[in-house]
Amino acid sequence: MGFLDISNVTKSYGNVEVLHRVDIEVKEGEFLVLVGPSGCGKSTLLNMIAGLESISSGDISIKGQVMNGVHPSKRNIAMVFQSYALYPNMTVGQNMTFGLEMHGVPKAERDTALANVAKLLQIENLLDRKPGQLSGGQRQRVAMGRALVRDPDVFLFDEPLSNLDAKLRVDMRTEIKKLHEKLKTTIVYVTHDQVEAMTLSTRIAVMYQGYVQQLGTPKEIYDSPANVYVATFMGSPAMNVVPARVEMRDGTPYALVKVQGGSEQALRFSQANMADWDGREILLGIRPEAITDPDGADRNSSNIVSLTNRIGVTEPAGADTFVTMELGGQDIVARMRADVSIAPGDEYAFAVNMEKAVAFDPKTENRIEP
């Protein structure tokens, strides 16, 4: 049993089930990120943990106690909202301690908690200001501080960085990660941003259409996606997924893919269990960084194969150059070194790290297990 247990939980509105049999066990001190597009059910699940939404079936437990029907104020959780939800007529200090005051915590304890958290978040100089006098990043720190002073069992974050500009979002992401590593708190964090999910979490639940598509560590999600949806949602640029045909040659499986012009090239698989797929169509998944120039290829890989193709578009991006080309009848992206000498229209011998390739069943779109 975990610190927070979500067991076979569903949510329905009338006859429409929007959240389907969710099972997640969250350990104490874990940072779980619920990630997915708008409407996938992630905020609904977070609100069910908080007690702001009722549970249609299943159980949610915190520290072994079932929370179904328990009022939000009795759950010992703290929530940080996208909108910050600060009282404009109160000072920062009053905003942060208001919840403690409502729970009857003595003033001396409130003042101690406020001083400790303000120091932790480096906002001691803001305590007498009103929210309207603060920047977006400062307001976010105050919202986090209001949650921290309560010392809850579980912190819930509902897209807390989406209102910030790009640079501040990166800075606050780092602050939240440092805070978690320092306090070892249990966090459930909702976002639609897969970069936030990858950088912050200890585990990720990728959600789509009310289902948890995959639950795992960032590395598991990135390297071994459970299906095509997870493969293409997680990663920037997204994983390339192209049609291919399996062919066994002297007991070794190859993926045959069509390059621009219609000819086929054979890419040797690293996974050996493809014999049952001999002669059959698959979807081949390769991350952009696994398609590069020969000098930039992974020196530790035992299966770098050559793929000659015509370059379509080049996009210099500072540390990298992204190359678009046609493979399997569709555009794919390769990530090259910044100083590689290439131009649109060139025929180029790309180095493909087939150790990083994954295969999907084109009918179910689920990964073919290695």
Rank of each mutant, 00 (worst) to 15 (best):
T308W: 08
R146Y: 09
S224C: 03
F157L: 01
T174A: 13
R21V: 01
L114M: 14
A50T: 02
I282T: 07
Y222Q: 07
K184N: 13
G36S: 06
Y189R: 00
V154D: 02
V212E: 06
G58K: 15
D111I: 11
G36N: 07
A85I: 04
I60D: 04
V117R: 12
Q330E: 04
M207D: 07
N366V: 00
A85V: 06
A78F: 10
C40M: 11
P294G: 14
K130R: 12
S56W: 12
I60N: 03
D339T: 00
M239K: 05
M102I: 04
L19C: 02
S135I: 07
R139M: 13
A238Y: 02
L134M: 13
T292M: 11
P37F: 14
S57Y: 09
K184F: 12
V22Q: 05
E17V: 10
T252F: 09
G210P: 00
P218S: 10
A115W: 08
D165T: 06
S162R: 01
T292Y: 03
E355H: 15
L215D: 00
D331T: 02
M102K: 10
V170T: 12
G312N: 05
H103R: 14
S162C: 07
E264Y: 15
V195H: 10
L327P: 03
G345Y: 10
R335Q: 13
A255I: 02
K363D: 14
Y13Q: 11
D5V: 06
Y84H: 03
L148N: 01
M336Q: 01
A147F: 11
C40A: 13
S7K: 11
T112D: 14
V92P: 01
D339H: 08
S263M: 10
G29Q: 11
P344D: 02
I282N: 06
Q209R: 13
V340W: 02
N8V: 03
D276N: 12
S56D: 03
T199Y: 12
V257S: 02
L200V: 09
E365F: 10
E326F: 04
R367Q: 13
S56T: 14
M144W: 05
D250I: 03
T91E: 05
K63H: 00
A359D: 05
M336V: 01
L179E: 01
D59A: 11
A85S: 12
Y208T: 00
R367G: 10
N240G: 05
I123C: 10
S306I: 11
L34M: 04
V80A: 05
L32K: 04
Q265V: 14
C40R: 12
G64P: 08
S38D: 07
M102V: 03
D293H: 13
I55S: 01
I6L: 00
E53S: 15
Y208N: 13
